[in-house]
Design a protein around this nucleic acid. Sequence first.
DNA 1: CGACTCATTGACGTAGCTCAAGGTATGTGG
DNA 2: CCACATACCTTGAGCTACGTCAATGAGTCG
Lengths: 225, 225
Amino acid sequence: MLMPRYVFSNDFLPFQDYFLASPHRVRHFHIGDRLWRAGAPHEEIHYILEGIEMHYALHENGHRKIISFHGAGTVFPGYHQLDFKIERSLVTEALTEMTVLAFTRDQFKQMFESNASLAEAVVNWYAAYVNRLLFEAVHQEYNTSFLRLCNLLYLFAANTPAPESAVLPFTQDTLAELLSLSRVQLTRALARLRQEGIIATQRGALHIVDLNALAAYCSSETLDD
Amino acid sequence: MLMPRYVFSNDFLPFQDYFLASPHRVRHFHIGDRLWRAGAPHEEIHYILEGIEMHYALHENGHRKIISFHGAGTVFPGYHQLDFKIERSLVTEALTEMTVLAFTRDQFKQMFESNASLAEAVVNWYAAYVNRLLFEAVHQEYNTSFLRLCNLLYLFAANTPAPESAVLPFTQDTLAELLSLSRVQLTRALARLRQEGIIATQRGALHIVDLNALAAYCSSETLDD
DNA sequence: CGACTCATTGACGTAGCTCAAGGTATGTGG
DNA sequence: CCACATACCTTGAGCTACGTCAATGAGTCG
């Protein structure tokens, strides 16, 4: 049974050769680059060969809200043919050096219409993205900041190769912006987890020390039982 | 440019004849019926011929969060082939008498794979659904309850035939559950709008009196300028 | 006309915000 | 390799928006 994800990767890996054989343009990005023009609608769709990008929104009042991360083997943004106002306040930024295959909407449309299993993959990707957003809108919204943090950390840890002793490479700023919390409030929640021996904190990273104790705090939507 | 929507209808109307000609089962639901078994994954996909349904989530702590409404000419839930835990806490309930064409996942898959323009429509529908969820997660989250209410009312009004004097048929309970607010807080925000002559309230409904004044309160993500 | 649902308002508690000040790693240039 | 700058992290104090609890009023329906 599938749990919410904040990190997307490899969900289009089976199509890599197909993408390479289809009309595209190879593009490179450097750390901190934005993957498309600010304020513009999404004109290109990327298949990521290498690197990780972060997708976030800038709110009128200055807050930054991190939505998701996208790594090798995935496609971003999701293919569609509409023009949404909100997309113009969304930013995608390279966290590492990146290499992508860039498709225009029309090029992607060609592939989408001629390759049914790619179309299925696009739809399944959308379903997973909806799931991540639903998790936040219908679930995290009603939780305290402490519980929201526990859920987030557990989901991240569960997606690593060694959940029991996972190292999560996030600054506290990043975690706060993922959870729509103030940095101060986030620090307080981390302090509690540290005092209880559940995590260890470090500059720019965070270690899971006692995954079971963490899981005991999480809500059922987070746990795969 | 497209704004967030809470009500979905007619986005699959061009396919109605196609749906009728494809293998399906006609089903009827009565007011208050749930459109699929509680706690189960979505096994059927409906094309709605008549009626309106409400989609909501039940949180562990008793809160109910209303997500969206689906009316004639649309398909719900979105087609995909995965199994998400969160779907089991989601409920879809008939608000009126309903008639739908029910497809199994396999039946829908057949259509999806053999009709490229249907596949496009599914993807565009997902993009609109993501947009509605993004609006809440990245935007409304940072707004005060008053501003969130203004945005919601404006979006609803803008989707009616006569926005200037729209009548919105929602109880205050429903509005509170759409905005993740307490009923009390919602009443207070409505009281302010009433005192300012922007709306008139009534049992089970609410009238827009001064749409421009309402728009002046809204944030830019809500306004189509 | 009684029973329900829906709406309104007041009193009070608290989670999480902002503001503020200081502490500790990490990196860079001299 | 030291001095300094720049993140990043921690903790305290006070404020406020919003939640809960509670009581009452006002439409609507059998």
